[in-house]
Simulated scan of single mutants.
Amino acid sequence: MSKTVEFYFDLGSPATYLAYTQLPKICAQIDSQLIYIPILLGGIFKATGNASPATIPAKGAYMFQDLDRYARRYDVPLKFNPNFPINTLMLMRAVSGMQLRHPERFLTFIDCLFKAIWVEGRNLDDPATVATVLTQNGFDPTEVLALTADEDVKAALKNNTEKAVQRGVFGAPSMFVDNQLFFGQDRLDFVLEALA
């Protein structure tokens, strides 16, 4: 039986975006399954007492330089979003809703949102901008907004976040292989080793 990578993610993390660009290739290389688990990073921070590195000016400046280095290494686009940090509550509810109600469109959905934030630098704190991005990518903003109000969807995101904390997750991206936690997009070589 092939191994799995459980990928705990929030759209608002640039490191998570970079991991997102690489994990499908890693899983294809080792013939393993990638399981996407949406979480609310703000909820993780609150539960664990953690905070974004960007809250410490020197560390934040370094982090974005380092992420830029990795983007060049991975040969993927990355643009610092001038609207960072983004409140992702509604976005991650939408992601959870798409996974729950329209799994066949889930990957296309997260792809357009990751790109809007981390390639195009769009302000996804602004509902009008979100609606434009969704429309441009073939999604109905009204239907997506309805998903964010769905009680089952809200519960799914909350449960994912709570279970992540119980498993020791303190930030994103977090990946599990055989119940081993790997934190950060700069730990993908360990993920690869664990799969192999």
Rank of each mutant, 00 (worst) to 15 (best):
A47I: 08
Q166E: 15
S174K: 06
I26Q: 04
L11Q: 13
Q180V: 14
N50K: 05
I86W: 03
E193M: 12
K25F: 08
A156R: 15
Q29I: 06
R72H: 13
F80T: 08
L23F: 08
K154N: 08
I37R: 14
L181M: 03
M92A: 00
P57F: 02
Q65V: 12
F64Q: 05
C112T: 07
E6G: 08
N50A: 13
D189Y: 08
N179H: 15
D152N: 10
V191Q: 09
P127N: 08
D189E: 14
A47W: 10
R73P: 00
F64P: 01
L100E: 13
N83F: 15
P141M: 02
D140E: 03
D140A: 09
L124K: 05
F139N: 03
K3P: 01
E193F: 10
G97H: 04
N87G: 12
N179G: 13
A149I: 00
S96I: 11
L89D: 13
A146H: 05
A164S: 02
A116Q: 06
N81L: 11
L91S: 11
P173L: 03
E120V: 09
F80A: 04
E162Q: 15
T55V: 14
F170T: 03
Q166I: 06
A51G: 02
A172V: 10
L124E: 05
D152L: 00
Q65K: 15
Y8W: 10
I26A: 05
Q29G: 09
S174I: 00
F170V: 06
D125M: 11
P24C: 03
R122P: 04
F183P: 01
Y70V: 06
N137S: 12
D66W: 00
K154C: 05
L188N: 00
M92K: 05
G60N: 06
Y62L: 12
P38E: 08
D68P: 01
F84K: 11
F170D: 02
G121F: 00
